[in-house]
Design a protein around this nucleic acid. Structure first.
Length: 868
DNA sequence: AACCAGGTACTTTTT
DNA sequence: GTACCTGGTT
């Protein structure tokens, strides 16, 4: 009631698992007590064949029904991965092999976890309340850690710091060490710590080179200081949510044994994305063989006070011995099922080890490997193109997707060339518009069915600009989220400090927000005093206001702050949390601060604060809410709006669209130069997997684009087509001939390729220089064609972020660089390279509608026609 | 505390 | 080119 977690018993009270676990091999039968879903399913299935199995293909079915022993499901794109995972859980429940609380199911993202919960709910018919251990690595990590916090030197109400807090904390530490925080950026060090933690390394274990690389060789010291500071703050970073449990499980065999008994089945989603720490964590929980563990004291038995005294390399080296012992004790089944796709491993740069999935059979001897290669998503051409491309990778287990679908109507993957990135955006915009219009059969595409997937987010901008001009609805997915907005983070800091008075980071954030005249000097005094006495800053403030240390003004201000927090923390027990939250924001003057702010963003920020309070309603306590927010940073999405999605290839993983546009396939951008420079062949292969992910997002149509000129770091550079284009199979790919409505530009720079050897069509009106000149003009004669009112833009996840929030229509249009005054008038007789002679029927900016003598009515760009 | 000039970096992102 | 940060000035 009071909190979101302190009422959770060590093991679920209503969970009969520990008292009376069902026999592992029991096929049917209703376990006594709890597990409502399990009982219902079991009862039902005693009478008839479970229909949840009937829709599966043989491989999927095998993946669902192979419950004993380790299983690796290699699930290619669009082969029904989630379906297998959820059905497998339903099957475990239905056959009465385990209670919901005995299944550990881990995902990477909250979205994936949510989706699984929903789908299991559908299968099992209702609530999945009984699946307490389905969640992200981190949320399960928190759950474990809350229960055993004291073993990690924390209290169970520890705070979870996000990246922003971590960076501020590190900055303080760097300064405290007397180092120049300009020369040694906190952000960079935060990144290093993250990398180390991904590998499961504690300060003592980091490579000497790493330790020396930062702050004149003080890397290790700083890392140690950071960990100590976290402990005194009673706080954790994201990495600790995994590392602390690992250490606890290693140093406390009794606790480990209890979890071994508890988790009869382990399921892991996106196994190819696991990093070393996650791998260690899984191994610990899956290694259900006490004898094997005892036989190898060196293995995962930690000797130190920190998780990883096993480096990845030594973990591998000792794997053989350990595995021998495991297979010797066949009694203890390891029922772990990992689902993943090595070809979709695209997170190596943030610590994911593809090797984990490649090594699975060695890690878990006797593992059953099931390949899902039957694709239900894409056309044969799309699969053919993607398959041929990915076959260029060496580091893969090797799968070939196939489909039963062979519709002669299905188009090949189309490769398009454009002169420059602006042309590219324009052409894709045109293509989207024409898809959106009803075709000859009256069919039209929804914008929701289309997506533009870019390699790097800077590419988005040009599309946004273009779509704004066209009045085309779009949504940008990714980027900073709701909970990262300034006002939300401030408000959260207030709430955190009320729940957790030792949260110094929260204290420092809001002590002078709104302004209370508590400047840097006062805060530094307070900070030093608190550190010297080893007490939280809020407590220090309580002390210091009793003295004459501060000037009267500051003393009074601080006195009020302390009194406020004292009052609020009392109310925590009595007042409903939403009311308390509102009261905090009002009484602190925070709401007033924004009300008095006359800047353009202020109303939006107030609205966001209201939204924050609203979203608290579904939680039972302020603590529960804080926990949720620290782990779930998602923003909600407006499904009703019909809009084109624009996102990076990375955020597209797992999604699918009828039509996909893949712009920017040029060397240097894709594959990205930095991936090449820093990752070598492995880097190239990851880029290739990214290309594979991109193509396989398409259900029906896939359009790949490259340009000959792109502005990189502000300079126009000529570019050469991506090597990936030449890795596509001719049989499934066609090269776009002259684009129907936007002319035959942009063959330039593609000379070395087999696609086309034509000279670039260098229209004077399509050179970058000319365009820049146009863009710089402040010519009022251009009109605002195409800007329909009611144009909707959605930024999923994007917050205020200042100049980027270009959502005011008037401004948007004025900013457009693509509207040009027309050189033509209606009725003019013109010539077009492809369509011949015709008369202009209408003009909208630089777009002309022309009645051609032979080709009929077409829309073309004015740059491609000449007066006759 | 608000403003501007100057410097810098600039792939991808979850928790 | 541009967005963001910082440090100095007003």
């Amino acid at each position: 009631m009071m909190s979101g977690y302190d009422d959770i018993p060590f093991f679920d009270d209503d969970d009969p698992a520990l008292r009376k676990p069902p026999a592992p091999n029991q096929k049917t039968g209703s376990p006594a007590g709890g597990g409502i879903a399990a009982r219902a399913m079991a009862a039902r299935d005693q009478h008839r064949v479970p229909d949840y199995l009937s829709g599966l293909n043989p491989e999927q079915r095998e993946a669902v029904e192979t419950l004993d022993g380790p299983v690796l499901v290699l699930a290619g794109a669009g082969t029904g991965k989630t379906r297998v995972l959820t059905t497998r859980i339903a099957h475990i429940l239905a056959t009465g092999r385990a209670f919901p609380s005995q299944i550990l199911a881990v995902t990477f993202t909250n979205k994936a976890a949510r989706e699984m919960k929903e789908r299991i709910g559908l299968l099992v018919g209702g609530a999945v309340e009984g699946m307490p251990w389905l969640g992200t690595f981190h949320s399960i990590g928190v759950k474990l850690l809350r229960r055993h916090a004291e073993l990690a030197g924390l209290r169970s109400d520890f705070t979870i710091l996000d990246t922003d807090d971590v960076v501020r904390l590190i900055k303080q530490i760097i300064q405290a060490e007397g180092l120049d925080d300009k020369r040694w950026p906190a952000k960079q060090f935060a990144g290093m710590i993250d990398t180390w933690k991904n590998k499961g390394l504690d300060p003592a274990q980091i490579p000497e080179g790493d330790a020396r690389a930062f702050a004149n060789g003080k890397g290790r010291e700083l890392y140690t200081a950071y960990q100590n500071r976290l402990k005194t703050l009673n706080a954790c970073d994201f990495g600790d949510l995994l590392l602390h449990p690992i250490r606890i499980l290693r140093t406390h065999p009794d606790i480990l044994r209890e979890y071994h008994q508890k988790f009869r089945y382990i399921l892991v989603d996106e196994y190819q994305d696991t990093n070393t720490a996650q791998y260690m964590w899984l191994r610990l929980l899956a290694q259900r063989s006490p004898s094997a563990r005892a036989a190898n004291g060196d293995g995962e038995q930690a000797s130190g006070s920190w998780p990883g005294d096993v480096s990845p390399a030594s973990a591998q080296a000792s794997a053989g011995r350990r595995d021998a012992a495991v297979s010797a004790s066949q009694k203890q089944q390891i029922n772990i099922c990992c689902v993943g796709d090595d070809d979709q491993s695209i997170y190596g740069w943030r610590g994911a080890e593809v090797d984990n999935i490649l090594r699975f059979e060695k890690d878990f001897p006797g593992a059953k490997v099931i390949k899902l290669e039957r694709n239900y998503r894409s056309t044969a051409h799309i699969l053919g193109a993607a398959g041929h491309l990915i076959a260029h990778n060496e580091d893969r287990l090797g799968k070939t997707l196939f489909t039963d679908r062979h519709d002669p109507e299905d188009g090949k993957v189309v490769v398009h060339a454009a002169w420059d990135s602006e042309e590219e955006a324009r052409a894709i915009g045109e293509a989207i518009e024409s898809l959106q219009r009803p075709d000859r059969n009256g069919k039209r595409h929804n914008l929701n069915d289309m997506a533009i997937l870019v390699r790097a987010s800077f590419q988005m901008r040009e599309f946004e600009d273009r779509f704004v001009t066209l009045g085309l609805n779009y949504r940008v997915i990714g980027g900073p989220r709701f909970y990262e907005r300034l006002e939300i983070r401030d408000a959260m800091a207030y709430f955190r400090l009320v729940c957790q008075p030792a949260d110094d980071l929260a204290f420092e954030r809001i002590v002078n927000t709104p302004k209370r005249g508590l400047g840097d000097t006062t805060v530094r005094n307070l900070h030093d005093y608190a550190r010297a006495r080893e007490i939280p800053m809020l407590a220090a403030a309580g002390d210091i206001i009793e003295t004459d240390e501060l000037k009267p003004k500051a003393r009074k201000a601080l006195f009020d702050v302390v009194a406020d927090f004292k009052r609020w923390s009392t109310l925590l027990e009595t007042l409903p949390h939403t009311e308390l939250a509102e009261q905090i924001l009002d009484e602190s003057g925070y709401t007033a601060m924004w009300q008095n702010d006359k800047s353009a963003e202020a109303p939006g920020r107030l609205e966001n604060l209201k939204e924050l309070i609203r979203s608290m309603e579904q939680f039972e306590s302020l603590r529960g809410f804080l926990e949720h927010v620290s782990l779930v940073m998602d923003a909600e999405q407006n499904e009703d709006l019909d809009a084109v999605s624009i996102m990076t290839l990375h955020s597209a993983k797992g999604l699918e669209f009828q039509t996909v546009f893949l712009p920017g396939w040029e060397e240097g951008l894709f594959p990205h130069q930095r991936a090449l420079d820093e990752g070598g062949r492995a880097g190239l292969e990851e880029e290739r997997r990214l290309a594979y992910v991109g193509i396989t997002r398409a259900k029906r149509n896939c359009h790949i684009w490259f340009v000959s000129n792109r502005r990189i770091h502000g300079l126009w550079q000529s570019t050469i087509p991506s090597r990936f284009l030449d890795e596509l199979p001719e049989a499934h790919v066609e090269v776009a001939e002259t684009e129907q409505s936007y002319g035959g530009y942009g063959r330039g720079g593609y000379g070395q390729s087999r696609f086309d050897k034509q000279e670039p069509f260098q229209n004077a009106y399509s050179t970058p220089g000319w365009r820049r000149a146009q863009a710089n003009r402040t010519d009022a004669t251009r009109d605002n064609w195409g800007n329909r009112s009611g144009h909707a833009i959605e930024r999923i996840g994007y917050g205020e972020s200042g100049p980027r929030a270009r959502t005011i229509e008037g401004e948007l249009v004025a900013k457009s660089t693509t509207t040009e005054p027309s050189r033509f008038s209606v009725g003019d007789r013109v010539f077009h390279l492809k369509f011949g002679n015709g008369n202009i029927a209408a003009i909208e900016g630089n777009k002309l509608t022309i009645d051609f003598d032979r080709a009929g009515q077409k829309r073309v760009l004015d740059g491609f026609v000449q007066p006759v």
